[in-house]
Design a protein around this nucleic acid. Structure first.
Lengths: 200, 200
DNA sequence: CGGCGTTTTGAGAGAGCTCAACATCGGTGG
DNA sequence: CCACCGATGTTGAGCTCTCTCAAAACGCCG
């Protein structure tokens, strides 16, 4: 679900677009929070920098993602945001959002709904990463993303994208899919996979 | 943050405790949603069952966790919840929560805050899992969980717990820590780790 | 002291990663 | 229409790293 789908029109109207060069800083830890960002294009890295200078990546947000939701409820940012590539971001000012939430409880509830869904999805993806074997991880992915019929899985984006969502190299994914197809467990189609039989 | 810390007293007063035997069902997909659960004791598995009978674990909630936040905004559950062990859960009825949110915007905002923080934490943990090498993953963990001084990391729970949070076997973690200590990168203390020098 | 869970160390195997080469496909421009 | 180009898709071979299984030391608590 993109920000466009759930942010009230009043807030969307207040959005400010900004263009970033690769390596450019969007905000730094300790800065006063300005609001919620949506990535329109490119990638932005959220990074926590240690006093010792060590960096730890907290998240890499890509086109369509929103970022820094928690900053709505905090006075200052707790990490740095740096453009990983040339990027375009859209800022939804905090004041506009919070004002809208106060004025319009439905908007606030919608926001909570989106967050709760995200928590669910993220937990699921984390659970998926606990599965060691590539094949079982793919099965988990197929089971979760199956269509209503429980047999067809539409592939969003390229297989490389799926591989990185699964935490596998693209080679490993290709091989696994090829093996599963050879065993008759799945059938590969254009932009989709059909599950043929349930394995143990 | 435990549910006790952020749920308004009015809601906590309406809580209903329930005891489950291992294997017992708490709710099933399609059931009308009754509310938010907190695990008091034991473990509960959230599972999606395919039409083909295949199971996919979405999440394993353990003592202190809350569960099914998204169900507050949905008419029916989208997965099954089954006790993985003997367990005690606490139900915060949906009606009480939503009524409180309507009556008290501060409570609603608090809820959104908690969810936003969780999203942040989960994204970070997911990012961590993208790191292949055990040593780098441990470094990431240390960097994220460092104290204010940026050098000391207090260990919550046992090293086995940390290992499972990191997605490593406990053996792998012990070995990695031993190697890092031998290299002078860290120093091990009782219930804590001290980072001595930043590695590349 | 005995028992249980955590911590630690050992050895071996397997699975996925890495590097590499090639095929395929869609778009672009001559 | 065809050649070219970049990105995706595919397959091969070797290696490294973590997992697995195993066993023992350690620490805590009754």
């Amino acid at each position: 679900m993109s920000a466009i789908d759930w942010l009230p029109a009043a807030v969307r109207a207040a959005a400010i677009e900004r263009t970033l060069k690769a390596g450019q800083t969007l905000f730094r830890r300790g800065n006063r929070t300005s609001g919620l960002y949506e990535i329109v294009e490119g990638q932005v890295r959220l990074v926590r920098v240690n006093r010792t200078g060590r960096e730890a990546v907290l998240h890499v947000a890509t086109a369509g993602d929103t970022m820094a939701e928690a900053s709505l409820f905090s006075a200052s940012y707790h990490c740095d945001a740096i453009a990983a590539t040339d990027a375009v971001v859209r800022l939804y000012p905090k004041a506009a959002i919070l004002a809208e939430f106060d004025r319009n409880p439905k908007a606030a509830r919608k926001f909570a709904t989106v967050l709760a869904r995200q928590v669910m999805t993220l937990r699921t993806r984390l659970e998926q990463r606990n599965i060691r074997a590539a094949r079982d991880r793919v099965r988990h992915y197929l089971a979760i993303n199956a269509d209503a019929d429980g047999r067809t899985v539409a592939l969003s984006g390229t297989l490389k994208d799926v591989a990185s969502e699964l935490g596998l190299t693209h080679e490993a994914l290709y091989r696994t899919l090829a093996d599963m197809a050879a065993d008759g467990e799945i059938e590969r189609r254009r932009g989709a996979i059909r599950v043929l039989k349930a394995a143990i």
